[in-house]
């Protein structure tokens, strides 16, 4: 275990060092013009393609957990630093200019989408788990619909009971106008991602506002309803954040494959032209 913690720190240090060393070496080679311009673009392009292939192989590693191919966390660190290095390489390859022509522009956009999605993925992988840990019950993503359905049944039963036991329709109206839709599915996904408590606060305020129309018994029932609202909101929070943690890969990985295909095509054309 101690070794694992030390390894983690060592990996970060090594990664940063290798990234800086490789980047500085590449920049120095490029600026010194040891290689002529055309060859420089061929070499930087081939290196960049190889680097992209290596970056994509991280996904293959995940499919082969039974082979002794280093820990996935080591791969992850290498993936991050080599990813940064690929950005440096791309700038060298593009001669620090904006891309021209539809193919190059598409390639650059694809590269940007993959890089930005990777950076966002890294950021949310480091920040969302903390938010997930300290709010609501830790639930398995696939179980969320079942829990949501259970909450939906409970809130409907509570509302029905409140209406049946009193001659008042206040809780029933509140359920129909505001709660039913809230409990029907995942809600306020964007607010949860952006860490906003506004929808939750608004719903709870609405619930508090109707208290003046309720009997003491109904007030007790409303408290139970508000507790379910909090639980549902926490569940939505888990859904939104866990969903985002899963979904960003659906951008990052397909665009990587697109990028690789187009880069291969671009390379063939470029080599044919030279």
């Amino acid at each position: 275990m101690v070794q694992q913690v030390k390894n983690f720190a060592r990996r970060h240090g090594c990664g940063l060092f290798v990234f800086l060393a490789l980047s500085l070496l590449s920049l120095a080679l490029h600026r010194s013009r040891v290689i002529n311009l055309i060859h420089c673009q061929v070499y930087s392009g081939l290196t960049l393609f190889a680097v992209l292939l290596f970056l994509a192989s991280f996904n293959a590693r995940k499919k082969l957990p039974f082979l002794p191919l280093l820990q996935a966390s080591t791969w992850m660190q290498i993936h991050i630093y080599v990813g940064w290095f690929s950005v440096v390489l791309l700038f060298i390859h593009m001669e620090y200019r904006m891309p021209s022509g539809p193919l190059n522009t598409t390639l650059a956009i694809l590269f940007a989408v993959v890089s930005v999605s990777g950076i966002i993925g890294l950021w949310i992988s480091r920040t969302f788990p903390q938010r997930l840990t300290w709010r609501g019950e830790n639930v398995i993503f696939e179980r969320i619909p079942a829990i949501r359905f259970q909450l939906k049944q409970e809130i409907a039963a509570l509302a029905r009971k409140a209406v049946m036991e009193s001659s008042s329709s206040a809780i029933g109206d509140f359920y129909v106008t505001q709660l039913k839709d809230f409990f029907d599915g995942p809600r306020h996904v964007v607010s949860h991602i952006l860490s906003s408590n506004k929808p939750r606060h608004r719903l709870l305020s609405s619930a508090e506002a109707i208290q003046r129309y309720l009997s003491p018994e109904e007030c007790n029932q409303l408290q139970d309803i508000m507790e379910l609202v909090r639980l549902k909101d926490d569940l939505d929070h888990q859904y939104a954040l866990q969903g985002t943690l899963k979904c960003w890969l659906f951008v990052h990985i397909p665009f990587t494959y697109g990028l690789l295909l187009l880069a291969a095509f671009h390379g063939l054309i470029a080599l044919a032209m030279t």
């Binding site: 957990p65 082979l67 820990q71 966390s73």
Partner: peptide
């Protein structure tokens, strides 16, 4: 029976898991 030890720990990309004595 595997070549590489507990696959769960090895598969975690975020160093979030250990098998602790």
């Amino acid at each position: 029976e595997q070549l590489s030890g507990p696959s769960c720990v090895r598969a975690c990309p975020h160093d979030a898991m250990i098998r602790a004595d």
